[in-house]
Simulated assay, not measured.
Amino acid sequence: MSPVLRAPLGRVMRWHRPLMLMVASMLLLVVVSVAGLAFDDRVLLGAPVWLKPFKFAVSMAVYGTTLAWMLSLPHRGRRWTSGLATVFAVAGFVDTAIVAIQAARGTFSHFNKSTASAERVMQVIFGNGVLCIMLANLALAIILAVQRVHADRAMSRAIHTGLGLAVLGMALGFLIPAQGTAQTALTTGGERVLLSSGHSVGVPDGGPGLPLTQWSTTGGDLRIPHFVGLHGLQFMLIAALLLAALAARHPLLRDDRLRARLIGVAATSYTGLIALLIWQALRAQPLIRPDALTLAAAALLAALTTLAAVAVLKAGRVSDGNPPAAQQANLDGGRVG
């Protein structure tokens, strides 16, 4: 391995170890799930049994890596953040393992109301794991929100707002069982199981869905805002990186305070998008079939986002063209002399 690659890899390996071990296990599960998708033709509610473990593994690997990177940045309260991240890593590993185990058994990891003692234990562990993941993220967000965790203001704000969006996305996971409809379904072995709820709104789970995600194409689906919120952290970090890259070609964006304001606009708009997706799903409307009201709301959100971004940029230009009073006084003094 070249020294150029060895140095970054060495830094990554020194990131939060429990999180990186969890990420490694998720990457292994991705490989296992892909093999399962290729060679195991069993289905649950119309979806391949290994699709859910694949999606969970990819999501947890991405989120765990992002969290490990964030915790490698200088910040106060490292003992607390490290402990909370360990809770996240353990709970994430256990919950995803349950998803994989249930897939291998050909039965359901979510909403399974089977009277078998093993299934009841699985559901209790899984539910408590979800709660631990959300509470650990909430505590991390609170600890990091009161401090600047990156030298660049825009990136620091992206971390703060991104964590908040992720916590919101996780909390939306609790809305799913509250709105879903109970139904019975068959395991791959032909056993009829009662499911206490479902992900879809207005239609039963197991109907037509989008490729890969299996989000309903005939009714609303609360997994959509749940997913979008959960990965708001990655979106905000990418937005901050893109603004930093654009700053090399656009002098106005070299002010990290202006970029931080733009990140604030992006975070507000992203929150509006989550609200729009919740509203659409609760009206039993498929993502790919928005009605005129949904399209109008989306257009309004886009227009308000554009206006806010333009206002921030205009204010930045005015500030850039009018140096602070002390600096102006020095310039005037220089001209008099």
Results as ranks from 00 to 15, higher is better:
Ser25Pro: 01
Leu27Lys: 08
Leu28Met: 13
Leu28Thr: 14
Leu29Pro: 09
Val30Arg: 08
Val30Asp: 04
Val31His: 00
Val31Phe: 10
Ser33Thr: 02
Ser33Met: 02
Ala35His: 03
Ala35Val: 03
Ala35Asn: 02
Gly36Ile: 08
Gly36Leu: 02
Ala38His: 01
Phe39Lys: 01
Phe39Arg: 11
Asp40Met: 01
Asp41Met: 05
Val43Pro: 03
Leu45Met: 13
Gly46Lys: 07
Ala47Pro: 07
Ala47Asp: 15
Ala47Cys: 10
Trp50Cys: 10
Trp50Glu: 04
Leu51Arg: 15
Lys52Leu: 06
Pro53Gly: 00
Pro53Thr: 00
Phe54Trp: 11
Phe54Glu: 02
Lys55Glu: 03
Phe56Leu: 01
Ala57Leu: 11
Ala57Gly: 06
Val58Tyr: 08
Val58Ala: 08
Ser59Pro: 05
Ser59Arg: 11
Ala61Thr: 10
Ala61His: 07
Tyr63His: 06
Thr66Met: 12
Leu67Lys: 09
Ala68Gln: 03
Ala68Thr: 08
Trp69Lys: 00
Met70Val: 14
Met70Leu: 14
Leu73Trp: 14
Leu73Pro: 09
Pro74Asn: 13
Pro74Ser: 07
His75Gly: 07
Arg76Lys: 05
Arg76His: 11
Arg78Gly: 01
Arg78Asp: 05
Arg78Ser: 01
Arg78Cys: 02
Arg78Asn: 01
Trp80Met: 08
Thr81Met: 06
Ser82Gln: 07
Gly83Val: 04
Leu84Tyr: 06
Ala85Met: 13
Phe88Tyr: 15
Phe88Leu: 15
Ala89Ser: 10
Ala89Glu: 11
Val90Phe: 04
Ala91Phe: 14
Gly92Arg: 06
Gly92Phe: 10
Gly92Ala: 13
Phe93Asp: 01
Val94His: 07
Asp95Val: 14
Ala97Ser: 14
Ala97Pro: 05
Ala97Cys: 08
Ile98Asp: 06
